[in-house]
């Protein structure tokens, strides 16, 4: 039969999947492999020569204290942001599925920050922090220094804005989770004498475990490589105290022209992010239950 010959299959593949596969290989796989090669060179991004230096860049990356400071900061930021995003998103999902009036309107409203890019959101919040909160602070007789002008304040601002930005998105996943838990099971637990809080803790939440795993994975992988909001809200200020890992990588490569070192640091960031994310999913999936 002609449909089983290799040349027929190849022709079919190229006709349907040729463009997609080519773009994927050119934009993702080729740069990824080339990037791994770049970590082994001390290229400045401009000159023709790409001196081969072996693993020196990784050694340098491990000694780059500003990088590890940025990494530590990213870790602290991610822990707070991920926990708060998920608490807020879960609470919102609970409220908008409880059957109150206008719940679809609220659901749509909480999603609005996700429609707008991080750059614009960062500038909007910069105005809120630098002008509006300062004005409120003055009116209440407090200090007139913007939160963004202090290192801890800038971190707090980044966390707050990230929670605000992503909670609406994660809410949608939790809403789908709430919908998937059948009403029968909940009613059965109530008839068996659970209080609503116990039913939530012992029945609904365990059944929604996959939603939690997914939301936590998504928020970890997003928080770890936060860049847009970092750039527009704090720009790494004051005194570089809010430079996150992704911004450090960008600066290392494009501002200081250390392509090899920057790429090595990007690869380390990727590995840390992948290890944390995958571990979380594996641990989370293990305890999944079904009704």
């Amino acid at each position: 039969m002609k449909q089983n010959t290799l040349s027929y299959k190849v022709k079919q593949y190229l006709m349907f999947g040729g463009v997609g596969t080519a773009l994927f290989l050119c934009v993702v796989i080729a740069p990824f492999l080339y990037g791994l090669y770049l970590t082994l060179t001390s290229w400045d991004g401009v000159s023709k020569a790409k001196p081969f230096v072996g693993f020196q860049n990784f050694a340098a990356a491990f000694q780059d204290t500003t990088y590890w400071q940025a990494m530590g900061r990213t870790l602290i930021y991610s822990v707070f942001a991920v926990i708060l995003i998920n608490i807020v998103a879960f609470a919102l999902a609970y409220l908008v599925t409880s059957g109150v009036k206008g719940q679809n309107f609220f659901r749509a409203g909480f999603f609005v920050p996700n429609l707008i890019g991080g750059i614009v959101l960062g500038y909007v919040w910069q105005f809120v922090f630098n002008r509006a909160f300062v004005a409120i602070g003055k009116a209440l007789g407090g200090s007139s220094v913007s939160l963004l002008a202090t290192p801890n304040g800038a971190m707090f601002a980044l966390i707050l804005v990230s929670v605000w930005q992503y909670a609406g998105y994660m809410m949608l996943i939790y809403v789908a989770g709430f919908m998937s838990v059948s009403k029968d099971v909940q009613e059965a637990s109530l008839i068996d004498g659970c209080t609503p809080a116990q039913a939530m803790k012992n029945v609904t939440i365990p059944l929604m475990r996959s939603s939690f795993v997914q939301c936590i994975f998504l928020s970890i992988t997003r928080c770890f490589v936060v860049y847009d909001v970092n750039l527009s809200l704090t720009k790494g200020e004051p005194f570089g105290s809010s430079v996150m890992a992704a911004m450090h990588v960008y600066n290392q490569a494009f501002t200081y022209r250390n392509f090899g070192l920057g790429q090595a640091e990007a690869v380390i960031l990727f590995l840390v992010c992948a290890i944390v994310g995958v571990t979380q999913v594996l641990v989370g999936k293990r305890g999944e239950v079904e009704a």
């Binding site: 080729a30 740069p31 992988t221 990727f270 992010c273």
Partner: peptide, 11 residues
């Protein structure tokens, strides 16, 4: 799982 940061320089 590859974040954009790993690809931007080679790109």
């Amino acid at each position: 799982v590859i974040p954009f940061q790993v690809l931007m320089l080679p790109l």
